[in-house]
């Protein structure tokens, strides 16, 4: 089991291989549809974004509200493909080095990952109650008006992921499916 501590480096990301299991600790940022749209609009206008994502990891999640006594409500990954129209620009312009989500990515995202040394990590979709237990603190740092779609700064400890697509473009979904496909 690999251990990854944020912020990460391009060198470190380029060493990872599709299928490896890892535990992530440190600060990660949440972001999904609406936050990505705003970030990209900001970048396109040439304005400074509200968060610094250089060498950071984004977690595609819209958490549930915390119950009293909880740090955060259930917080599993959402479908990453919806962020595909925005991800290449965020990797290129903001220096994002990792994304945590679930589901397929577009070729444009994979190309940006290969070029800039970013990795796509998978978390188990539907395991939001367990994944929330790996979050030590959560605070909204941008776009509070978006509710569950706001950008949160999360401090995580031993957050379990699998390397889904590495910087060589090897996709675990494709290799995994190929092994069991009988059609």
């Amino acid at each position: 089991m690999l251990r990854i501590t944020t912020p990460v480096s391009e060198v470190e990301m380029r060493e990872l291989r599709s299928g490896q299991k890892a535990l992530i600790s440190g600060v990660i940022y949440t972001g999904r549809d609406a936050a990505h749209k705003r970030l990209v609009e900001t970048l396109e206008k040439g304005e400074p974004p509200p968060v610094d994502l250089e060498n950071q990891i984004i977690y595609y999640v819209g958490p549930c509200p915390a119950k009293p006594g909880q740090v955060i409500g259930s917080a599993g990954p959402t479908t990453s493909g919806r962020m595909d129209p925005y991800a290449p620009l965020i990797i290129e312009k903001m220096g994002l080095k990792g994304m945590i989500g679930k589901g397929a990515r577009s070729q444009a995202v994979v190309e940006a990952m290969k070029k800039h040394g970013a990795v796509y990590f998978l978390a188990v979709g539907g395991a939001g109650a367990l994944l929330a237990q790996k979050v030590r603190s959560a605070e909204v740092v941008a776009y509070e008006d978006l509710g569950p779609e706001a950008i949160y700064r999360l401090e995580v400890e031993d957050f379990p992921v699998i390397v889904g697509i590495d910087t060589l473009g090897v996709d675990l979904y494709e290799t995994g499916r190929e092994r069991y496909r009988a059609v």
């Binding site: 819209g62 909880q70 939001g128 929330a132």
Partner: peptide, 15 residues
């Protein structure tokens, strides 16, 4: 995960 959700009375999935 479903067991943890049931015991704590929290959502199985954030969606």
């Amino acid at each position: 995960n479903a067991e943890a959700a049931r015991e704590a009375g929290v959502p199985i999935c954030q969606d």
